[in-house]
């Protein structure tokens, strides 16, 4: 159930809460973006590239 706003500042408070949630959400995402990429990714891609090049010509 939604609670009715109790005071005039309720809207501002909700906006502040949303900003905090937004900042944390970006942090959760960016934390992963900033992790070093596991070698496995590049290994797989390199192998596929080598395989394709071998087949190609």
């Amino acid at each position: 159930m939604k609670q009715p706003p109790r005071r005039s500042g309720a809207l501002d408070e909700a906006r502040l809460r949303q900003q905090a949630i937004g900042a944390r959400l970006r942090q959760i995402f960016d934390d992963v973006v900033n992790e070093p990429v596991p070698d496995e990714f590049l290994d797989i891609l390199r192998d596929a590239d080598a395989r394709d090049a071998g087949k190609g010509r």
Partner: peptide, 13 residues
């Protein structure tokens, strides 16, 4: 390759 970190983040969520 430059997109891998973003793909990882999207996959994680």
């Amino acid at each position: 390759v430059a997109l891998i970190p973003h793909l990882r983040a999207f996959a994680r969520t």
